[in-house]
């Protein structure tokens, strides 16, 4: 083999190794494609099941999350939405509780928009934010179809639920799961066929729903016992702030 040929092959190998070392995404991810996942246990896929039949709307999860993660007053990583549902025929009313948090989507639209790679999905499925890297552009807040993200008033960067990843890694349950008095929130590894969450999901197979499935975000927070009317945007009365008929402020202001 002559020298130039050997040099060429050597360089070719170096280039190939470089490609292998370079984040795969830079070679492969097109505009607005998902970059590769990084960090976390590749053998796990965390998810959460929320059994609405067990939720009493006590907001213990909201409070314990706020104590654990310290978002500013008035901002929430998780909160239980409450609705009054009336059957038009019988005029009977019922309260519906809908705990909301980041859905840790398998195709998270918030990740590829980030211009500085401050948010990414771990190999265990959890979407995290590096608050030291985030520039607070708010693009991920726009991209999340579930309003799960917000700009934290104190840190001025994007904030969201991360399944209390720091607790999971220490062998603890997320604060909301641990404090749930009805045991409505179940977190676990979806890759483990024997996990509690997989058992609950398979037992209720016909009654498992996710929010806005048509957006193809593939959410990994699964609701059990949810009425179809709550899958998409709420078609109803906005009770607190706005008169939906006239667009005028009411409720909190009047």
């Amino acid at each position: 083999m002559d020298v130039s040929r050997r040099q060429f092959l050597g360089k070719a190998a170096a280039v190939t190794a470089g490609v292998a070392v370079m984040p795969l995404s830079e070679a492969e991810a097109g505009l607005n494609d998902q970059p590769p996942r990084r960090g976390g246990d590749p053998n796990k896929r965390y998810g959460m099941a929320i059994d609405l039949r067990r939720c009493i709307g006590c907001q213990a999860c909201t409070v314990s999350c706020s104590i654990e993660n310290q978002p500013p007053v008035g901002q929430f990583r998780t909160i239980v939405h409450q609705y009054e549902v009336t059957d038009n025929a019988s005029e009977e009313t019922a309260a519906v509780m809908l705990p909301r948090l980041c859905n840790q989507c398998d195709n998270p639209p918030c990740v590829p928009v980030c211009p500085v790679q401050a948010t990414w999905q771990r190999k265990d499925g959890i979407v995290v934010v590096d608050s030291d890297q985030c520039v607070g552009c708010g693009y991920c807040v726009q991209a999340c179809p579930y309003d799960a993200r917000f700009i934290n008033h104190e840190t001025q960067v994007a904030d969201k639920c991360n399944f209390c990843v720091h607790r999971l890694e220490a062998g603890l349950l997320p604060a909301c799961v641990e404090s749930c008095v009805g045991g409505a929130r179940i977190i676990g590894d979806l890759n483990d066929p024997d996990s509690h969450i997989n058992r609950v999901l398979s037992e209720n197979y016909d009654d498992v729903k996710v929010l806005k499935p048509e957006l193809n975000t593939r959410p990994h927070v699964f609701y059990i016992g949810m009425t179809d009317a709550f899958i998409e945007r709420i078609q109803g009365e906005s009770g607190l702030w706005f008169d939906s008929e006239h667009g005028g402020v009411m409720g909190a202001v009047s």
């Binding site: 939405h81 409450q82 009054e84 549902v85 059957d87 038009n88 009317a229 009365e237 607190l240």
Partner: peptide, 9 residues
């Protein structure tokens, strides 16, 4: 069925 929001942020 009609829905009214009671607590939503």
């Amino acid at each position: 069925m009609s829905i009214a929001e009671i607590i939503v942020p």
